[in-house]
């Protein structure tokens, strides 16, 4: 007889809001954000082993959504468009959520960074996470996060 296993639909209802918020903040586009969230949860139906249970589901989901958003930015050709538009963007200032043009400048840089560095940059610059929190999400040491963040200005300089 088939055995019953845990439900993705319930996870979607419980965690979908935070996933959608994350995707919105990274992509700045409601429709694409919904696509990313749907794809993330549907992929769990096909490959539930993605979430190995080594961390809390929220932590895994933050990382998974960020990864998909970065791929979406790359795939959609936003890179060239945003870079053209914001190549000389001024450095963003603080504030809850940041101004749209500032976030666009951040996204423009993200799509040209190496994958791991881009993910760290999202958590640091867009989410406002601490080194400790980023290390927890990515499953690596705080020292590594610090080292990679220190290397970011150099990468950004090269890209510009």
């Amino acid at each position: 007889m088939p055995a019953l296993t845990p439900t993705v639909a319930e996870l979607y209802r419980t965690y979908g809001a935070s996933a959608l918020r994350r995707a919105r903040s990274i992509l700045g586009d409601e429709a694409r954000a919904q696509d990313v969230v749907q794809d993330t949860f549907v992929s769990l139906l096909a490959r539930p082993e993605q979430f190995a249970g080594r961390s809390a589901f929220s932590t895994w989901l933050y990382s998974a959504v960020t990864h998909r958003c970065l791929n979406t930015l790359r795939d959609q050709g936003n890179r060239a468009r945003l870079l053209d538009r914001h190549a000389d963007a001024a450095a963003p200032s603080g504030g809850h959520g940041g101004a749209p043009e500032e976030l666009a400048a951040v996204r423009a840089l993200l799509v040209r960074l190496p994958a791991e560095l881009a993910q760290i940059a999202v958590h640091y610059y867009i989410d406002g996470m601490t080194h400790h929190e980023i290390a927890e999400v990515l499953g690596c040491s705080r020292r590594r996060i610090g080292t990679l963040l220190e290397s970011l200005p150099g990468h950004a300089q090269e890209i510009r």
Partner: peptide
């Protein structure tokens, strides 16, 4: 590059709140 999203120092991140 500065942080686009800033919460007051010492405040909870969205991850913790989630």
């Amino acid at each position: 590059m500065q942080r686009a999203f800033q919460r007051p120092s010492g405040c909870l991140s969205d991850l913790v709140i989630d």
